[in-house]
Computed example of a mutant assay.
Amino acid sequence: MALTRIYLIRHGATILTAEDRFAGATNVPLSDEGRTQAGHLAQRLKGLPVAAFYASPLDRTMETARILAEPLQLVVNPCDGLREISHGHWEQLTRAEVEQQFPAEAAAWDEDPFTFAPTGGESGLAVTARALPAFMDIVRQHEGESVVVVSHKATIRLLLSSLLGFDPRKFRDNLDQNPAALNVVDFKNAVRARLMLFNDTSHYSEDTLIKPDTPKACLSSWWAK
């Protein structure tokens, strides 16, 4: 059986990415830096035999996917299941603001972001319940082909946790995703996945401000201890 290869990509940087704010459901475009990152990744992917492009319908993911698809002259298929986690009434706040305004929620979320959700938001479990079936439908529809899927930081980490058998309660602590990061997942069949490349940003230009280095800040307080 021919392998199915998924190029699983996080969208490029946005203004809110740089400010390290909760922006899961907030519909923001790419920043100039994010467009540059996506452009470099497009050059990296353009010689590959990609059969189709799918993306979360939010502006930052669709824009990233269109930049990637343009050299291959392919259209981008929006997929609602690939949306980012919604943080409810935390949206557009910094972590410090959330801890000050909603201390009990912040503590519960830190303890278990997989089953807890802030008011009006989603848990990691809820995201997995919609994202994993959508992702696996793409895998099944493109057996033996290579496909680009553009999604978001939390959604990608939750998908990889499920596919690889990681503890999903620790998806924020144990996995990271830089803007415009490339992951490669191969499928022998719909239930056998192998991670071939993770959080790769070697397509970044030398003068890009964000480097594939130790994070200076992140939304997981575990790394700040």
Rank of each mutant, 00 (worst) to 15 (best):
T17D: 15
L30E: 03
A52S: 14
A104E: 11
A126W: 03
T14R: 05
D80K: 15
L58W: 04
L30W: 04
A134Q: 12
K46E: 14
M196E: 11
T14N: 04
P71L: 11
P212V: 06
F116G: 05
A25Q: 09
E105K: 03
N27T: 04
T128M: 12
L219N: 10
T61R: 07
F102W: 12
E145F: 03
F102I: 01
A154M: 03
S31K: 08
A2I: 02
P49G: 11
D176H: 09
K216L: 13
A104C: 00
S151P: 05
V148T: 05
I15H: 13
Y204S: 06
E97K: 01
P49A: 12
H40D: 07
L158D: 00
P179I: 08
L163D: 03
A52M: 08
R192Q: 13
D112V: 07
F198C: 13
Q141N: 13
L159N: 01
K170V: 00
K216V: 11
L160P: 08
P133C: 06
L195Y: 09
P71M: 07
R157M: 02
F135P: 01
A23V: 07
D200H: 11
G88N: 06
N199A: 06
E19A: 14
P212F: 10
F135N: 04
A52E: 08
E33G: 14
P168L: 06
D80I: 10
V76K: 01
A65N: 10
N27C: 11
Q177I: 01
A25F: 08
M62H: 07
Q141S: 14
H11N: 14
S146C: 09
R130W: 02
A96C: 01
A65C: 12
G12H: 07
P71N: 05
T4Y: 01
T64C: 14
G24A: 12
L48H: 09
P29Q: 07
I85L: 15
T26V: 15
H40I: 01
T94N: 03
